[in-house]
Amino acid sequence: MNFFRRTLLVAAAGAALLAPVAGYSADIKPRIIRFGYGLNEQSNQGRAAKFFAEQVEKASQGKMKVRAIGAAALGPDTQMQQALIGGAQEMMVGSTATLVGITKEMAIWDTPFLFNNAREADAVLDGPVGTKVMDKLQAKGLVGLAYWENGFRNLTNSKRPVQKMEDLDGIKLRVMQNNVYLDSFKTLGANAVPLPFSELFSALETKTVDGQENPYNTILSSKFYEVQKFLTVSNHVYSPWIVTVSKKWWDGLSKDEQKILSDAAKASRDFERRDTRDEGAKALSDLKAKGMQVNELPASEAARMREKLAKVNGTIAAEVGQDLWNETQGELKKLRGAK
């Protein structure tokens, strides 16, 4: 065999080795999913986003990869929601309160003192009422997959302890960009200032605002104790987060891919709630250890606030629809009557 013929045979053998196996495409790349969130990587939100990413990669055998991007690097909730609607971003988790401008029924979760405990919140959010509210998102270009827990919200400020309703008078309090929060705190006497969460620490540090309200976990992970002295245990609102997907993008997925994301969202919901509650139990003592002055709002003052907010509740009922309001109250009545 001459040199030229040997060279051709070697080249042909090499080409055969490099050729793709039947049924396999060398061009297949994993589907990259950008999953945005507002808090930092070390927060309960960050840990749950990581758990979600791991579930998706495992269930898809690496064909789908979630890039969890925190610290509002993709923008505040409102900006990410618009990116999802336009199809420029795939997924996010954020507050239901910032969705009210898109889907008015989400305002039901902003009702002050709606839930007495986490058991009630889980049952209503994961039940028919929660599903009905979540499904309203689809007409607006979003798909809701699961509610996570932000938690019961509590007040902090740099001026004084809030021991009675009148102590809120004149306090510049940052609230979410949501009319129910604005109306509620204005009604209670605070000077309510709407601000994106991403601007909050700086606003507290520069005294642009005096205070804010968030669950213990967020107060701790965001280091608000560095710029806030007083913490009032008020539990005035139970605040959910919601995992949402761009409908424009979702509709292009296969049923199997949709199921992987839906199952992972529910698994991460269960993980996140356990993690949040475990962390919340110790976060309060950590905040005390870091120098925050903590007081509990007396039950009599919480009752006064409820009465004062009756008009706001009437506005919420009108906004979300009386049928949804009555259904939610009916579910809560059943839960409270159950032995």
Rank of each mutant, 00 (worst) to 15 (best):
L168D: 10
N235Y: 10
R336T: 11
K266W: 04
M64G: 03
F230Y: 13
V162Q: 00
A68H: 04
T328V: 02
E105K: 15
L200W: 12
K63N: 15
W109R: 14
F4P: 04
S198P: 06
D278T: 11
Y216G: 08
I242T: 08
L182N: 04
G94C: 02
K132E: 12
A264W: 04
K104E: 15
L332G: 13
G144H: 06
A302L: 09
E199Y: 15
G130D: 09
D169W: 05
R5Q: 14
G75E: 07
G36H: 05
V175G: 08
S239P: 03
G38L: 07
D167R: 15
L297G: 00
E327Y: 04
W148Q: 06
A13I: 09
G87Y: 07
L220R: 08
A310F: 01
K65M: 03
F201I: 05
Q293V: 14
N217L: 13
F201P: 01
A48G: 15
E327H: 07
F115C: 06
A338V: 00
Y216D: 02
D126H: 11
G141D: 15
K282F: 08
G211H: 05
G46L: 02
E57S: 05
G86E: 13
L297H: 03
N313E: 10
A73D: 13
W241P: 07
F230P: 04
V227N: 13
F197C: 10
D135Y: 11
V320C: 07
A118W: 12
D323T: 14
S221V: 08
A264H: 06
D286Q: 14
A264R: 01
N150Q: 12
